[in-house]
C-alpha cells in the first residue's frame, strides 16, 4: 500500500482539534472530491451540488444526511457508476472519470441494496465476484473464507442467499464489497433495517477493516453509528455539505447539542423527508 499520492487540490483547512488517524505517521489523501455537481436530467436541482472534501488514508469518513440529501448519488459518482455533471473525483490521485478501469481496482462498494444473487449461496456469490476481481485458486478460496469469517457467515455459507435473514444478507453484502481488500471501501447505508446483533457485528467488522488499513467512506442516517465509527463526518442536505469535522468538535461547537443526532436535527430541520 505504498503509493505516490498526487495532492493537487488546495490544502484543506484542518479543524482546530482534528486529530487525524496516523498510518505510519504520514497523512495521504486517498479520496479527493472537488466541486462535484451531479444533476439527473436537464433543469431541476442538482442532486449533488458542489461537494468538496478530502479523505485521508485510514480514515472513516461519514457522509450524513436525510433522505434525498444526495449521499447515494455522491457515492455513485465516486465509484464510477455515474459521470459527474461538473467537478472531479480523484482516487489515489487517479481521475475517476478519465481512468475508471484503474480506479475500480482500488475501490470496493457495499451498495444500499443487497447486490447479491438470491438463488446462489453466499459462497457462490463471493466466489463469482472474487473471480471477476481476477482472484483464483487457493488465494480466491482464502479470501472468500476470510470475508465470510469477518461477517460471521461461515456456517451459512452454503445456503442460498434468499434463505438468509435481513441481517445476514447485509453482512454478506459487506463481505462481497471487501473480499478483494480494496484500498477504499464505500458503504451506502450498510446497516439499514436490521437487527441489533447484525448491526453490531457489521460495525465491529468495519472497525477491524479500518484497523487493517482500509479507508472507509460511510453513509448513514443513524447518528449514533456515525459517532461510534467515524473519526470525521460531513453533514449533507440538498446536495451540499452544511457541516464537516470530527463528531465531538461539531457537537461542542454548537450550543444545546448533546450528541450528533441533536446537531443533525438542528442543522437539517425537523420536517419530514419522505423523498
Amino acid at each position: 500500500m505504498n503509493s505516490t499520492v498526487v495532492h493537487s487540490g488546495p490544502p484543506a483547512d484542518p479543524l482546530p482539534d482534528f486529530q487525524p488517524l496516523a498510518v505510519d505517521g504520514c497523512e495521504a489523501v486517498v479520496l479527493q472530491v472537488q466541486q462535484l455537481v451531479k444533476s439527473y436530467g436537464r433543469g431541476g436541482r442538482p442532486a449533488v451540488d458542489g461537494l468538496t472534501f478530502d479523505v485521508q488514508e485510514g480514515e472513516a469518513f461519514g457522509l450524513l444526511g436525510p433522505n434525498g440529501a444526495g449521499k447515494t448519488t455522491a457515492i455513485s459518482v465516486m465509484c464510477t457508476l455515474l459521470r459527474p455533471t461538473a467537478g472531479s473525483v480523484h482516487l489515489d490521485g487517479i481521475d475517476v472519470q478519465a481512468e475508471p478501469g484503474r480506479v475500480r481496482r482500488l475501490l470496493g462498494l457495499v451498495p444500499q441494496e443487497i447486490a447479491l444473487y438470491p438463488r446462489l449461496t453466499g459462497r457462490e456469490n463471493l466466489r463469482y465476484f472474487a473471480r471477476l476481481y481476477g482472484l483464483k485458486g487457493l488465494e480466491l478460496e482464502e479470501r472468500v473464507a476470510d470475508a465470510l469469517e469477518l461477517v460471521q457467515l461461515q456456517e451459512h455459507a452454503d445456503r442460498p442467499v434468499n434463505s438468509y435473514s435481513g441481517g445476514m444478507k447485509r453482512r454478506a453484502n459487506l463481505a462481497a464489497g471487501m473480499l478483494h481488500q480494496p484500498r477504499i471501501l464505500f458503504l451506502d447505508e450498510p446497516t439499514v433495517g436490521i437487527d441489533a446483533q447484525s448491526r453490531n457485528l457489521i460495525l465491529d467488522s468495519l472497525s477491524r477493516l479500518r484497523q487493517a488499513g482500509t479507508t472507509l467512506v460511510y453513509t448513514t442516517h443513524y447518528m449514533e453509528e456515525a459517532q461510534q465509527l467515524c473519526n470525521r463526518v460531513a453533514i449533507m442536505d440538498g446536495g451540499r455539505i452544511i457541516a464537516e469535522g470530527e463528531p465531538a468538535a461539531l457537537i461542542a461547537g454548537r450550543a444545546g447539542c448533546a450528541n450528533l443526532e441533536q446537531l443533525f436535527l438542528q442543522l437539517t430541520g425537523s420536517h419530514l423527508r419522505d423523498d
Binding site: 457508476l81 475500480r104 471477476l132 476481481y133
Partner: peptide
C-alpha cells in the same frame, strides 16, 4: 433491480466479457 448490475459495474472487468 437487485443492484448486482451496479456492483458488476464497479468491478475491474469488461462489461463485454460479462
Amino acid at each position: 433491480q437487485e443492484g448486482t448490475l451496479q456492483r458488476l459495474r464497479t468491478l475491474p472487468v469488461s462489461p463485454l466479457a460479462i
